[in-house]
């Protein structure tokens, strides 16, 4: 069931476009922002609101790398692996993170706190290696810096439970 509040938000998004079809990606963002990932139910709900066949919504979801069909960690840490960052050690950071957390890519830690993703160029190459935590930039990553970052996030989660 779609909450009334979210349905309202969805209708507002749809009204913002000259043609309704444009709203599908913003709606998927909305659902993912609130639920953390896009379940079959979420896709069916967006399809219903959009008046689109679910297969078409799924097509859109599966095409774009930022849409996730499985839950991620509460803090999803992404590291750029493109050339400029890789030249400055970005891929080592990625390996370091995965070793620290003992997880594969886009796979949450058992406590659900973290997941790690590899992303392509984030357009901040001057501050390489670059990453994002829940889409907020973090840069000039080093193994030590990443360890501190994990500790900070863990403390934040245990503290007030506030988001990133």
């Amino acid at each position: 069931m779609i909450s009334e509040a979210r349905r309202q938000k969805a209708m507002e998004i749809i009204r913002g476009f000259p043609q309704k079809s444009s709203a599908v990606i913003p709606l998927l963002h909305l659902w993912q922002d609130e639920e953390g990932y896009l379940s079959d139910d979420a896709i069916a709900e967006v399809a219903e609101i959009m008046g689109m066949p679910p297969a078409e919504v799924q097509e859109v979801v599966s095409f774009y790398s930022m849409f996730h069909r499985r839950p991620l960690g509460r803090y999803h840490i992404e590291v750029c692996r493109s050339l400029s960052c890789a030249l400055m050690g970005g891929r080592d950071i990625l390996d370091h993170l995965r070793r620290r957390l003992g997880v594969g890519l886009n796979e949450p830690t058992p406590d659900g706190l973290f997941s790690v993703g590899a992303v392509e160029c984030l357009a901040r190459c001057d501050l390489a290696p670059v990453g994002q935590v829940n889409l907020e930039y973090t840069d000039r990553l080093t193994p030590e810096g990443v360890d501190r970052l994990l500790a900070d996030l863990r403390a934040r989660a245990e503290g007030g439970g506030a988001g990133a």
Binding site: I43, A55, V57, E59, S62, F63
Partner: peptide, 22 residues
């Protein structure tokens, strides 16, 4: 005009697909 089939994924992993359960 009834797109029950759609593509899934992209690049070399692109495949034809229906929606789960439909």
């Amino acid at each position: 005009e009834d797109p029950q089939l759609a593509l899934r994924q992209r690049g070399a992993y692109t495949a034809v697909s229906t929606f789960p359960g439909r």
